[in-house]
Design a binder for these strands. Structure first.
Lengths: 142, 142
DNA sequence: GTGGTTCCCATTGACGCCCATGGTGGCCCA
DNA sequence: TGGGCCACCATGGGCGTCAATGGGAACCAC
């Protein structure tokens, strides 16, 4: 399958590394992604990651808006000023930096959540809670 | 027959596997489904499964919304982050993961219930109860 | 040098793939 | 119509492979 799906929780080791689930690595490998682009999610306390092509998509979206609008400015600030590049080691692990920890509250375990064209890093409890809340709201609607 | 009908209860083995009823496997084979998309039902304590085309249907629902809205994000969190791909082994069995157990309460036996374009995994007693209740309500209406 | 990384290698536990067995129902034939 | 044979399905278990994790050692930057 060609998109990021499902979720998995992995442990951070003594050096601050965590394995990206093989399922996600397989998706990355399929599109020959070497370097990951990471940014802070606009809605949730999670850090998102994907190949560099999403950066271009964001830029197009910003370009389509009024360049002086508060929205476009905020988005550009997050995308350009707040994004970082990361790469995985030979075993498919990434280093959990303070950039990630501070924004997500992650300490010793990471929940990876697929989001279709990208995936996210969550503090496990926060993910659980947000997901169950989303389900509850959804049930209320239908 | 080209849809999932009726129900059957099978036992989970020591390795946590359970046979998908051959009736259901036949339906999957007919539409050449190799990989199953599984999600937590929005109403019942059951896990639903179907071919990937269901996922695409969900994604179209998300795609019709503003991609930055909280609504679209929450839906994606459920559909992508809460969904799982599963595949059957050579004998047509699937692994009953914690993803399934936690949500359904399944321990050692699984009731498979056909739902037309998909089928569901239930804890046997929960299925019995839900079905008899549905029958009762139905009778009360007519 | 010293701290923080990156590159490699080791371990182990889970999972996928394969073959075996038994039970049941259907079908054929007498 | 009854008995027996056969095929298929549910189930059990062995074993190899791979992913997740842990840790040593080289390497770089300050």
């Amino acid at each position: 399958m060609n998109r990021f799906l499902s979720n998995a929780t992995n442990r951070i080791d003594a050096k601050g590394r965590v394995s990206v689930p093989s399922m996600f690595r397989a998706v990355l490998a399929r599109s020959a992604v070497e370097e990951l682009y990471a940014w802070q999610d606009f809605v949730f306390p999670a850090v998102s990651m994907a190949g560099p092509e999403v950066l271009e998509r964001f830029e197009r979206m910003i370009g389509s808006q009024d360049p002086f609008s508060a929205e476009a400015n905020k988005m550009s600030l997050l995308i350009h000023g707040g994004g970082v590049f990361m790469k995985l080691d030979g075993e498919g692990r990434l280093l959990v930096t303070d950039f990630i920890r501070d924004f997500t509250g992650i300490t010793d375990r990471v929940t990876f959540a697929g989001r279709g064209d990208h995936f996210q890093l969550w503090e496990p409890a926060a993910f659980e809670e947000m997901q169950s809340r989303a389900r509850k709201e959804r049930t209320a609607i239908s």
